[in-house]
């Protein structure tokens, strides 16, 4: 349903005049009805990826196909179909609603713009139905955002996105501004909505626990690139890339007995400046496995398990897969060419 192919997005850096590649050669696919989770730390490009999919930003190069339609480089006025197909749910429920509009008016406006209902009773009924869908009673229509709690606002944000009857919801850190108990409510709601409405999600988060809980597949990003992508059980419970493993160790498990048995030594070093990423593998400056080849060559994503791709020279070799795309560990060694980033077939 959604396919990104070698998508790059650069932002000019004012001080140096160079380009900051926030997203640097990202490819993945999302099937209809699937939930893809994207995790990573700040500067990894996950939020930019979200913005590219809903075309708040236009990719510099590469292609993004949604339902077979290209959206890179297409002028805004020709994107009406996209607005009815893909919607975004924002991180901060306090900023994503216009403080001057009552909840009902905000949702009705979307219905009107997209001519989803006739004005009057039909519109009011639909607003109430949408509120009901996200677990809010009809009297919320008359309230202003400042009268709502964070969780209630996030529900309104979801209802407003659903008003266009989209097929794809891009959720950009929808939980991170909420308290633990409210997060649980919203996650349960998202699970229910997917089943009831047959939605597809791209779920952006820094919380591996929640991503593991909700998603069918997980992509891990580091400095603008995907370092590991695969089924949730693989990436969450049997991660292969050293960065994914570091991320797992970094996040404390809410269980003292499990924590007691863990080796929670942190990976050293700071996140490198995305405007000036290290050469070769971007994680090599902090990686416990780094070798010479990692400092020189950018590892491509190679398939190491069922639908499970990892971008790491060392891990690939341990699995008998070479990072230039062939699968013969005994063949003659060739330096892999970063410009020829062999994507999995």
């Amino acid at each position: 349903m959604l396919r990104l192919t070698d998508v790059r997005k650069g932002f000019p850096v004012r001080s140096t005049g160079e380009e900051l590649w926030a997203v640097d050669g990202v490819s993945f696919e999302v099937e209809r009805g699937e939930i893809l989770g994207i995790v990573g730390e700040s500067g990894c490009g996950k939020s930019t990826t979200a913005k590219l999919i809903v075309r708040l930003e236009d990719a510099t190069s590469g292609s993004i196909h949604l339902d077979g339609n290209e959206l890179v480089g297409v002028p805004d006025r020709d994107l009406g179909w996209l607005r009815r197909t893909a919607q975004l749910v924002f991180q901060d429920p306090y900023a994503s609603l216009n403080p001057r509009l009552r909840v009902g008016a905000a949702i009705a406006e979307v219905l009107r713009v997209h001519e989803r209902t006739r004005k009057g009773q039909e519109e009011r009924d639909r607003v109430n139905e949408l509120l009901g869908l996200v677990g809010l009673s009809a009297d919320f229509a008359g309230r202003y955002p400042h009268e709502l709690s964070g969780g209630q606002r996030q529900r309104v944000g979801i209802a407003r996105a659903l008003a266009v009857e989209p097929e794809l919801l891009v959720l950009d850190e929808p939980l991170s501004a909420l308290d633990v108990s409210v997060q649980a409510e919203i996650v349960n709601l998202l699970k229910r909505l997917r089943t009831e409405l047959g939605l597809t999600y791209v779920f952006i988060s820094h919380d591996l626990g929640m991503v593991r809980h909700l998603c069918d597949r997980i992509a891990v990003m580091y400095l603008g690139q995907i370092v590991e992508i695969g089924p949730w059980s693989q990436v969450a419970d049997a991660a292969l890339h050293p960065y994914t493993q570091a991320l797992h160790t970094a996040v404390p498990i809410p269980d003292p007995e499990l924590e007691a048995g863990r080796d929670a030594r942190p990976v050293p070093g700071e996140l490198p400046d995305p405007a000036n990423p290290p050469p070769g593998c971007r994680f090599h400056t902090r990686c416990p496995l780094a070798e010479d080849v990692c400092r020189r060559d950018d590892p491509p994503l190679v398939r190491l398990g069922t639908d499970h791709d990892v971008a790491c020279h060392v891990v690939a070799r341990e699995h008998g897969v070479r990072t230039d795309g062939s699968t013969d560990p005994d063949g003659p060694s060739q330096p892999s060419d970063p410009s020829d980033r062999a994507e999995h077939p």
Binding site: S181, A184, N188, R212
Partner: peptide, 23 residues
């Protein structure tokens, strides 16, 4: 008990999280 149930537990299944009603 509600707070602990509201968290996804790693290494376990993915049942619905426990919700505490109200605020």
């Amino acid at each position: 008990s509600g707070l602990l149930g509201a968290l996804p537990s790693p290494g376990a299944g993915r049942e619905d999280l426990i919700q505490m009603p109200g605020a």
